[in-house]
Design a protein around this nucleic acid. Structure first.
Lengths: 337, 337
DNA sequence: TACCAATATGGTACCGCTTACATAAATCGG
DNA sequence: CCGATTTATGTAAGCGGTACCATATTGGTA
């Protein structure tokens, strides 16, 4: 049986409140007793029971993280950032993978509530009305990570997806490309779908390339198993593309794979730019040009933000946007000069 | 404030014990009251406090997971397997990333202890003596995942790494390769280093190819940033290799990248076989031949095993080995016939 | 209708800890 | 050296539940 505060008190021959004081306000207990208590704690290897403490303080120092698909390497650095910030602020993370299944999500939220978690980090997915109402019902502090909500006043941290997509496409245009295609997420995806497509179109329009705006194939959700299919559809629809903007690195890698099988050279015949800058992007053949999200920072910042809310420090900015960056590698070619 | 059992009791006009009974042994309470209680629960959206329950039951239905490097895609499916099994058995997972830092590890173990976690899943890393003693001290059920210990009697689930490496190399040999190299983890890594190198050597010896056994470059830990360096060292040391066995898919992808830069064709000039079968292995250029670990099953099984230990169901097999499989894709060539 | 067994319900101690309150010990000036 | 004030320690209530035990209620039988 694990030693309790009683065992320590008995061994040190003091009352349990004295033991408690030694741990929480050591200055208020006289030196001689403090030593005895500390000795006993050490001898018994006593550690306070976080359940009992949590019951009193109404704080568990635990944060629940909702992730739609943990297999997506995009989350790796987000989680690391969250981890590091949590460690700094004294939280642990409960990470839950929903597979984008509403039942699973709700069951996890329920579990969070019962476990008296201090706050929720909700990543990537849009906040649908029923999700929102459930969240409201639970009244738990929440921060949206790599997603946000325009309908509801929920705090969030992410990049500016529209601008990032714009910058990616503008990079291609500035490199001299005029026949540009896109592999996009469905428009119903308000976070990474509609916004990135919108950025694509805006860049085209501003450079009088509006005829390209239908060179798009939409993939459903984050379907991963068939990126070749998307690539093949796009290429047969628009055979004369000189560059493709792909809305995730994983899709870009699928495209690279498909082009290679078709004997189409990258970047000589077609340039490819991805999105996310996952760890493997620098090891593809050829190395992938992409727009980098500050994933680690997004994770880190989201925990800080959640903490501020938990501690009731009024946070000035509701929706935060972190800077992105185009990383040029070898999968894109500059046609001019 | 969250509603408590008292609020429910008051609203339903019964005692708290009756409410408790409705939740735990509903048959023992008369229909009319049960309905009233259920109504009150519903009206107040009451959910029992898991902290209070945990205090009594001495069970939190929470499992702590220790992962050395969450960025490694190898863990993605392990975690999914763990998740699914946890869901089935009613646990939640607290996932912690140690970055292979002893201080972090110990701090997490400590946190697990305080949070009264039911058991630990310890992945990948060897169990050093001081780790073992710490684990002993904490007396928490533990299962080693993708690692095991010959010194200590700790339950584990993993593949047979020696045999898997043997099979990978034998696959190359059976394909007609005679000049085989290896990119290995250091021998001090008793799990994925020494064993896989041993499997490599055994395959060579059994096929009279012992002269190849020095065609090896060892990479330190899971260093990821410089797989090109390892590739370059190996190739300059042994320029006439026809096949390379690489001890992880990420290293294989790095090798692919390096060979491409050098203008060396895969698999025409050099065949490459990886290890792990991560999700991206089927999207490399060319698609990667590799030995597949049943990662999802390893994760799933490890939770089942841990649960058996927690529930004191004596588990017959201490060290479990799950089957692996060579997956032939396009990065290897058959020289014979 | 009275009596007893079976069943339903309420009261309460307790899980491990914190904290307000009461009490005992220590400190101090006059 | 004593009474007042400060400081240290113990006692007990309570956080939100469960479970044991003791009543209260019910129902069947004589």
């Amino acid at each position: 049986m694990k030693p309790t505060i009683k065992d320590v008190a008995k061994l040190a021959n003091v009352s349990i409140s004295t033991v408690s004081r030694v741990m929480n306000s050591p200055d208020s207990v006289v030196e001689s007793k403090k030593v005895r208590v500390l000795d006993a704690i050490d001898k018994l290897k006593y550690k306070p029971n976080a359940l009992a403490r949590g019951l009193i303080y109404k704080k568990t120092n635990t944060i629940g993280v909702i992730i739609p698909d943990i297999r997506n390497p995009y989350y790796a650095d987000i989680i690391r950032g969250m981890e590091d910030a949590s460690k700094k602020l004294g939280y642990s993370l409960i990470i839950c993978n929903t597979d984008r299944d509403k039942k699973r999500l709700f069951s996890y939220l329920n579990n969070f509530y019962e476990k008296q978690i201090d706050g929720i980090l909700y990543t990537s997915d849009p906040v649908f009305p029923d999700y929102y109402h459930e969240l409201q019902r639970l009244r738990m502090p929440i921060v949206l990570v790599s997603t946000h909500s325009m309908e509801y006043d929920l705090p969030s941290v992410k990049i500016n997806d529209e601008q990032a997509a714009y910058d990616a496409v503008k990079f291609l245009i500035d490199s001299g490309h005029r026949k540009i295609g896109m592999i996009a997420f469905e428009l119903t995806d308000g976070i990474a779908g509609w916004t990135r497509y919108h950025g694509f179109v805006r860049a085209l329009r501003e450079h009088d390339l509006e005829e390209c705006k239908d060179n798009v194939v939409f993939v459903e959700g984050w379907t991963y198993e068939t990126p070749d299919a998307a690539a093949s559809t796009l290429l047969s629809k628009c055979p004369d593309l000189s560059a493709v903007f792909t809305v995730s690195d994983e899709l870009a890698i699928g495209l690279l794979c498909y082009l290679n099988e078709q004997g189409i050279k990258v970047p000589e015949q077609i340039s490819v730019i991805g999105f996310d800058n996952i760890r493997l992007a620098k090891l593809t053949v050829p190395k992938l040009t992409t727009v980098a999200q500050p994933t680690y920072e997004i994770g880190y910042r989201s925990v800080e933000k959640l903490n501020a809310i938990i501690e009731q420090q009024e946070d000035p900015v509701l929706r935060e946007y972190l800077p992105h960056e185009v990383i040029e590698r070898a999968s894109t070619r500059r046609l001019n000069r």
